[in-house]
Amino acid sequence: MTAPTAERATIELAQKGDKAAFELLLRAHYDVMYRIAFKWCGNQSDAEDITQNACIKLARSIDSFSFQSAFLTWLYTLVINTAKDWMKSHARHPSKELPDNHRAEQPTAENAIFANQTMAYIRDFPDKEKEALFLVFGEGLTHGAAAAVMDCKESTVSWYIHEARKKLQSFREVECRHG
């Protein structure tokens, strides 16, 4: 799998030390990185911190990207690893608060609250299951592509997803009974 020409050229330039090229790369991918980070931790300020760390990491490791995989795939791995490290170093669970108060005030609040609760529940899953869910359903990767990011077999990804969905199913049933 090779990167598209312009992207590849940009990356190569950045690897040679071209600042502007690197900045282009950053600006082009910041939002994607943020999105992954946000899914992982569930609130804006943590997501911003994680993305910031990931950006710094990118600066240090851009040299080691060898065009063996798609840049985006490589980037996913980088962001997710950063997020894991960050969570570990902060030794606290991802915030279970609703990301923003205004969500609860919206008319369609009920669905949103439920979605947020579910997301908060997912954030407590084992890292691998969480990662598989985010990559496949959040980023739209195939099981195979997710496997490349997670550095495991495709069947393993499918298994993670299966496990996660089983848990989600029971979570939903419990929630609905109470609700």
């Binding site: 600042k19 950053l26 899914k39 997501a47 911003e48 910031q52 950006c55 710094i56 600066a59 949103a112």
Partner: peptide, 25 residues
């Protein structure tokens, strides 16, 4: 997954992250 992203990144945070990454670079 698509619906829960309620808070978009703030520009200031983006700029800060980029600036720090550039420093690291």
């Amino acid at each position: 997954m698509a619906g829960t992203e309620s808070a978009p990144p703030r520009d200031a945070a983006r700029e800060r992250a980029i600036s720090q990454a550039m420093n690291a670079f």
